[in-house]
Computed example of a mutant assay.
Amino acid sequence: MPSGTCPLRPNGSPTVIIDGQKLSGDRVRTDRSWESRFIKALGQWRLVGRFEFAGLAKRPGLQGPIDDAFMDRFVMVKPTGRANSEAIGKWTEAQLGQALSDWELQFRAKPRVVDDIDLTRDDIENSNLILWGDAGSNLLIERIIDQLPLNWTSDTLALGQAEAGAVTHVPVLIFPNPLNPNRYVVLNSGFTFSRFGHMSNATQTPKLPDWALVDISKPYNAGDPDCIAAAGFFNERWQPKTVD
C-alpha cells in the first residue's frame, strides 16, 4: 500500500491469512505505507524480505501474457531472409504491417522497427523483442529457436501437447528472451486487442494467453477462435502446461 493509504496502525504487524494459514506481516510504516511478500514452499507460506528466483520462473513484470510485452520498451524486429514457406512469409509480412498500422491508429505513435541484421546489444539488453517470421527468415528466431518450448519443423508445429501442420500454422507466443531473461521475446504478434480496441476502452483487454498456434489459411483475428488451433498459458516455470 502506498504512503498514506494503509488503514492499519503504524508500527503494528498485521496478521495475514493465506489459504487458511495465519502469518505475521511486516510492520506498517509510520508514513502509513505497507507491503509484505510471501512465498509458498513445501506446502507452507512464509514471509520473505524479497523475491528470489532460481532458474526460469514467472515473476512480476515477467509473467505474460503476450500483451505484457507492450507495456514497456519494445522493438519490432523485421526479417531479412527467406521464410521456410511462401505462405508463412506472406502471412508474417502482412501481420507485421497490420501491427504497425494498428499501433499508430490506437496509440498515435510509430513503433521502432529494425532489420534483424541491425539489432544491437543495447536493444537486447533494454527492449522486449517482437520477432517476426520463422527460423528461415529471421536471424534472431534462428538464434534462439532451440531455447524456446517449441518444436517447429518443416512439417510439424508442436507446443506442449498441441500439434498442428507447419505448412498452415504459425506460433505466436511470449517467453523470456534466452539472450536476456529479464526481457521478453514475442513471436509474430502485436497487441492482441487490435481488432477491438478502437471501439471502446472496455475492449482493450488481452485476447490471447501466453501462446497460440494460428491457422494462417483463415483470416487472422486474435479474438476469433476459428483461426486459433490451440492456445494456453505456460506454467510458473515457463513450460507448457500438461493435461492429465
Rank of each mutant, 00 (worst) to 15 (best):
S3T: 12
P7I: 10
L8I: 10
N11F: 10
G12N: 12
P14K: 07
V16C: 07
D19E: 15
G20S: 00
S24Y: 08
R27N: 12
V28K: 06
V28E: 08
R29A: 14
S36Q: 02
G43S: 05
G43I: 00
Q44P: 04
W45L: 10
R46C: 01
F51P: 01
F53K: 04
Q63Y: 08
Q63W: 09
G64R: 06
I66Q: 06
A69K: 07
F70Y: 15
M71A: 14
T80Y: 04
E86P: 06
A87I: 12
A87N: 09
K90R: 15
L96E: 05
G97Y: 02
A99I: 03
A99H: 06
L100H: 00
W103H: 14
Q106P: 02
R108A: 15
K110P: 05
R112E: 15
D123V: 01
D123E: 01
I124G: 06
G133Y: 04
G133P: 09
D134P: 06
N138H: 02
I141K: 00
I144H: 02
P149L: 08
L150I: 07
L150G: 02
N151F: 12
W152K: 04
T153V: 08
G165K: 13
A166I: 09
V167K: 13
H169P: 05
V170H: 00
V170G: 00
P171Q: 03
P176A: 01
L179H: 00
R183F: 06
Y184F: 12
S194K: 13
H198Y: 15
N201C: 08
A202M: 13
P206E: 03
A212F: 07
N221Y: 08
A229C: 04
A231N: 08
R237T: 09
T242W: 05
T242F: 07
T242H: 08
